[in-house]
Amino acid sequence: MAQKSYDSNGVFLSKKTLYSGDKVILKYNGLLSQAGAEGIYVHIGYGENWDNRSFVPMKNLNGIFEAEIDIQEGKICGICFKDSADNWDNNSGENYIFTISKKPARKKQTKKTSNVIKIKH
Rank of each mutant, 00 (worst) to 15 (best):
K4L: 08
K15F: 06
L18V: 09
Y19L: 13
S20M: 09
G21W: 04
G21K: 03
D22E: 06
V24S: 08
I25W: 03
L26G: 03
Y28H: 02
N29Y: 10
L31N: 13
L31C: 10
L32N: 00
S33L: 05
E38G: 15
E38T: 12
E38P: 06
E38W: 02
V42L: 04
G45T: 03
Y46V: 05
N52A: 10
V56Q: 00
P57Q: 10
K59N: 14
N62S: 15
G63V: 06
I64Q: 12
I64M: 08
F65Y: 15
E66A: 05
E66R: 12
E68L: 05
I69Y: 02
I71D: 10
K75V: 13
I79K: 07
I79A: 09
I79C: 12
F81A: 08
A85H: 13
D86I: 04
D86F: 13
D89A: 00
N91I: 08
G93L: 10
E94D: 14
N95I: 06
N95E: 05
Y96S: 00
T99A: 12
S101F: 12
K103L: 05
A105P: 00
A105D: 08
R106V: 14
K107S: 14
K108Q: 11
K111M: 05
T113D: 12
V116T: 15
V116G: 09
K118F: 14
